[in-house]
Nucleic acid binder design. Structure first.
Lengths: 205, 205
DNA sequence: AAGTTGCTTGACCGGCCGGTCAAGTGGGCG
DNA sequence: CGCCCACTTGACCGGCCGGTCAAGCAACTT
């Protein structure tokens, strides 16, 4: 939060290898607890107890409980976006790119249930909603770009690309929740389903 | 709310007209605050202060903060379901029924932003998630029923009706969030968009 | 050896939390 | 009129919250 150019990292302190390790340990355990019990119900004391360190350790690495949470969110959003871009690769076919993007998104959601739960909560809390909106805007922009290209090439009927991108997001989130958390299907199965419904709706061919 | 068949209510108190009014007042104000500031960050003290009564009044009408929240959720879910059923009416045409259901759902979401926000939070908190799952199951069952009928009549291609119902829910939630909360479009505009995307996906005719 | 700095400890702080309760208050009804 | 009871009050409770800090420890550098 000190370097004006770096938006995502606290990186205010010089850390040794041991320090970086401790930091990651705290992040990992906090992610687990926030996902399982919720952000507000999980206290800082519980986190440090769970890791087996004193309370001061937490405030050595993070300015506050909120800041830790925001860092978890930012890192997860970045990972999702990068995973999606990598999965698409350098394709020329817009339709193929769209499908690959949807599939990668669904797979990421399926494989990161904890982070998904954090996302869902964060959207409902005004303190974190703006972080979520920022990340979601980038994700939607990526997808809308590809959809727009497909419209220009006449590959799909003309429709608001942003609306479609949001719809894809909504389908992915909802179906992941149902088919991964409740019914415990395989991620690939989920991805196929999401792609199919996104493409065709309920009346499509 | 008093009928013994209603599983949501426990031992009720005999309320006078004045009592019922006070109760509704507390529910209304709590809904407002929970939606604006979140459930955990809003204290019981803030609620009674906002209404202008002593703290004991709250616990005269509600057993706990959690119970009040659950009652708000149950009532809202019921209202959504009833609104949807009423909007569909006694139609014979399955496709028409599906579209009317989607439209009514989207309109309800657009017209009840506070309750929508409560729903979103409640899904992320284990204490309330089971209430939400129960309500959502009923909503999805209603929709899946209609979709299933449409498949049987050969009006739409065969696909898992439950998956479609969940997809519709996901699209509705996501697009409402974007087009009502952020961009402030008219509810009817949103409803049209949701119906169109649900029916056709991104590649549909 | 002495100094520097990264890291750790855990008692402590003021404040707020959800919830309780003994003591009223007041409106309707016999 | 007098009583009952639905309703209201607000001080109070034990407990936990996020966050602080003086002090100690450990691993390098000089």
């Amino acid at each position: 939060m000190k370097t004006p150019t770096d938006a995502s990292q606290g990186s205010e302190r010089r850390l040794t290898a041991r320090g970086r390790e401790r930091r990651e340990q705290l992040i990992a355990y906090a992610t687990l607890r926030f996902a399982r019990d919720g952000f507000h119900p999980t206290s800082v004391s519980e986190i440090v107890d769970g890791v087996g360190v004193g309370k001061g350790v937490f405030y050595w690495y993070f300015a506050s409980k909120d800041e830790l949470f925001i860092e978890i969110l930012r890192a997860a959003q970045q990972d999702l976006r990068r995973t999606q871009l990598k999965a698409i690769g350098p394709t020329d076919d817009p339709l193929e790119a769209i499908e690959a993007g949807i599939r990668a998104g669904a797979l990421w959601m399926a494989e990161h249930p904890d982070l998904r739960r954090l996302f869902e909560f964060a959207r409902t809390d005004e303190t974190f909603a703006k972080v979520m909106r920022s990340g979601q805007r980038q994700l939607v922009a990526q997808a809308a770009q590809r959809l727009s290209t497909a419209v220009e090439h006449g590959l799909i009927p003309p429709r608001d690309p942003e609306a479609l991108a949001h719809a894809i997001l909504g389908i992915t989130n909802q179906l992941t929740m149902v088919y991964i958390d409740s019914a415990q299907r395989r991620p690939e199965e989920l991805a196929d389903l999401v792609v199919s419904i996104c493409r065709n709706g309920y009346a499509g061919s």
